[in-house]
């Protein structure tokens, strides 16, 4: 700007030299001209009118529109934020529901497996008990049969021994002695009626 001003200064000087009517000077500095001052009076009136019109009428309109826009944008942002929160809540709900369903299914599977195991165990136990009982019955029968067989063996042995003694010696064998001898022999061979 200073450059402009200095250039203007030189130009003013040169133009004054050109014009040869320098005494007139700049019209802006001619304060004897009533128009110079009247211009300022009109300036005051026009500036005041412009200020009042702008501050009371024109600028508030712009402010209203800007405020309206800021309000609209704010409301839209608010709505978007609410929608986002809603969507987030729905997603969270979905996730928790999925997780609960998974957990329920898992528990059901576990329960079914446990029930099946228990049923199988019970069945096996029942089967074992029956087998045990049959085995026991069979063993008892075997023991009874053997006892019976053993009792018969002693009698046969005693009678046989008596007959053999009679045949060899011609005497009637002493029954108690025969019986004791048979008992001793059987004990030696570990064949007792009670040892089933």
């Amino acid at each position: 700007m200073r450059f402009t001003a200095s250039l203007a200064g030189t130009l003013l000087a040169s133009s004054a030299a050109f014009a040869q009517e320098a005494p007139k000077g700049m019209p802006q500095l001619d304060f004897h001209n009533p128009l110079t001052i009247s211009q300022v009076v009109w300036l005051a009136l026009i500036f005041l009118a412009l200020y009042l019109l702008l501050s009371r009428w024109a600028l508030p309109q712009v402010a209203d529109v800007l405020e309206l826009r800021a309000g609209t944008i704010g409301r839209d942002l608010e709505a978007a934020r609410a929608a986002k929160a809603q969507a987030d809540a729905a997603v969270a709900e979905l996730t928790s529901a999925t997780r609960a369903a998974q957990a329920g299914a898992q528990a059901e599977i576990a329960a079914a497996v446990a029930a099946a195991k228990q049923a199988a165990g019970e069945q096996a136990a029942r089967l074992n008990a029956r087998l045990e009982a049959q085995l026991h019955t069979a063993e008892t029968q075997i023991a009874a049969a053997r006892d019976a067989a053993m009792g018969a063996l002693r009698q046969v042995a005693g009678e046989t021994a008596g007959v053999v003694v009679t045949k060899l010696t011609g005497m009637v064998a002493d029954a108690p002695r025969v019986e004791a001898a048979v008992a001793a022999a059987m004990a030696a061979r570990k064949l007792s009626a009670g040892a089933a």
Partner: peptide, 21 residues
């Protein structure tokens, strides 16, 4: 009323600003 061309331009300028708004 000593209304000059300078004041006329002021009026035009003011009208342009108000017109724009």
């Amino acid at each position: 009323v000593r209304f000059t061309q300078s004041n006329l331009m002021m009026l035009i300028g003011a009208a342009l600003i108000l017109g724009l708004l």
